[in-house]
Design a protein around this nucleic acid. Structure first.
Lengths: 333, 333
DNA sequence: TTGTATGCGTTATCAA
DNA sequence: TTGATAACGCATACAA
């Protein structure tokens, strides 16, 4: 591998001059040509580690998510990455499989790698101490989930509203017994989405039947189980709101298995699963989160922090989700 | 950040001794304790860039795939990563969106970052020159797709057999007009899967009707379109084999839209889409590739190369896929 | 087993 | 504008 010294020798100038050229300083047009030639000829590339040692920057940002095989997260990451790479940053993507201990381990790993910044979906309160500590000298942006009482930048979706609007739609169509399949109780987005469900009931003076609120695990199986439980109730709901991607999938599987049809037997609104919205017949109504925008916003916020702009810290971004209405909702009386 | 010098001072030994301790050399038990105390107290962490500058290793491996939002690839990556991280390596994951130019760009980016090795799904012949050049001093492992005539390690699936077995199943059930929805013509896995289709026809002395071979784009839309075309034929096939994840999804959507039922109206075998295998009613038969094993094999092969073991180069691994039979195949006469 | 000293390739300071 | 040089933090050869 050619070094800057090789380039300097080849071009007949000093190392310092080459370095200046590389980093955008002023160099005589004449030398500029010589240097460019040398770089071309020698196929020179900056040694990122030597530079990093000097500048104390790795030009690497860490991304930590619960799961790599979750389309919601990978879509956000793809969006993130496209922005961040154009600024010369590379990313280390890690996943912790919703395991708090693994989350800590991966965070420590990222610290070991001296990442310049971190964008992460936290598991919960579990590692707030470590996250806060790291954030002292490494900007951290939370996405999707906030941590109660944390002093951290965050890019979130308006879960309460997303949920509120969906359930409100059911109500407008005449439904009064509306089931909801929530995520794990302690889960940030799950809590918020449940709040939306409860709030719209209060606002419309509808009684909430605790039987109609089921808690899944945000996984396929949980959605499957919860849906079955709901339909097995003595008085089953006429409409069901499923609050994430995987559980929506699970719920539809369960419906298929039970031979229950949408929306004749039960009305359905899902979450995030755009494919299912088209795949299932009739097309499923869905609450869709702005994944691209989440990625973009988080990336830009991080870049801002990386440039030393601490304004508005901790800044909280709430992006709106969209309710996509299809034919999975029956009007009843 | 504490340096090794700080640790040395604190512990009252030399830098060299600390370094030796860190890298697993022999150190007096007494000094060991002192050093451990110092590291603990100062919260010392090795500066990865300084080390890299010295050892000429980044302990980073690049992963390059066509798409981050493709479950097939992300599943492989998750498997890869779990192995590679336990060896202290981190990964830079990049995707090139099936775009040859972007593939080149991302490869160059990885080179810029001085990755120690690369695991990639190549787009095709397009960047063979660059890949071969990089492979001179950076081990590269190809996965999923091979490049014709390339001298490179590769971990592939036995596509021909996977396809052969699936179509053979149709034949065994009495089908004679069997449609196939292939990937893009120039595509490595697409070609192989088509070969399987053709070979089983020859072996069973069945004529191949070119009408029954449709080429999609390995995307949802392509599967949707191809399936529609097949069913719109004057004499439509009685069975259809769809050759990847997304197109299987698209095909099922199309079937739903057209009100065609499985397997009464048409028998179906899909590829890789385990979720659909359960979601669709009746459960869909599927060819399943061993994603975990692909990741594991590639990771181990790369680690071997990273350790300087060049034995068997270029080594070609062919993993078997599995045919999962469900109720989507009707027996006919 | 330990310590001294050198160099990895770059950036940045300062004098010319 | 340019160049000589120090320093970044570490690993390692060699001497002790």
């Amino acid at each position: 591998m050619a070094t800057i010294r090789d380039v300097a020798n080849y071009a007949g100038v000093s190392i310092a001059t080459v370095s200046k050229y590389i980093n955008g300083g002023n160099v005589l047009a004449e030398n500029k040509v010589l240097i460019e030639e040398a770089i071309e000829k020698l196929n020179y590339q900056v040694n990122i580690m030597a530079r990093g040692l000097k500048t104390n920057k790795t030009m690497t940002i860490g991304i930590l998510i619960p799961s790599l095989t979750n389309l919601f997260f990978t879509t956000i990451i793809a969006s993130l990455e496209s922005i961040i790479q154009t600024e010369g940053y590379s990313t280390i993507i890690s996943n912790y499989q919703e395991d708090v201990d693994l989350e800590r381990e991966k965070l420590e790993f990222l610290a070991t790698r001296n990442v310049d910044g971190i964008i992460m979906v936290p598991s919960g309160q579990g590692n707030l101490d470590l996250i806060t500590k790291l954030n002292k000298d490494t900007p951290i942006i939370l996405i999707d989930r906030n941590i109660e009482g944390a002093q951290l930048d965050a890019v979130l979706t308006d879960n309460i509203n997303g949920s509120y609007t969906a359930v409100e739609k059911f109500i407008a169509k005449g439904h009064r017994r509306i089931g909801v399949i929530c995520g794990p109780k302690e889960h940030y987005t799950a809590e918020e989405r449940l709040v939306g469900y409860e709030r719209v009931h209060r606002d419309y003076k509808l009684k909430i039947d605790p039987e109609l609120i089921k808690f899944g695990d945000y996984q396929l199986e949980g959605g499957h189980r919860a849906l079955t439980q709901l339909l097995d109730l003595e008085v089953p709901p006429t409409a069901i709101f499923v609050t994430n991607y995987e559980m929506t999938l699970g719920a539809v599987i369960a419906l298929n298995e039970m031979g229950v049809s949408i929306p004749q037997d039960v009305s359905i609104i899902g979450y995030d699963n755009l494919e299912l919205a088209k795949l299932v017949k009739p097309p499923l109504s869905m609450v869709i989160q702005p994944m691209e925008a989440i990625g973009k916003t988080a990336a830009q916020l991080l870049l801002q922090r990386l440039n030393g702009d601490r304004s508005g810290f901790p800044s909280l971004h709430r992006l709106e989700s969209e309710l996509m209405i299809k034919d999975s909702i029956k009007r009843i009386d």
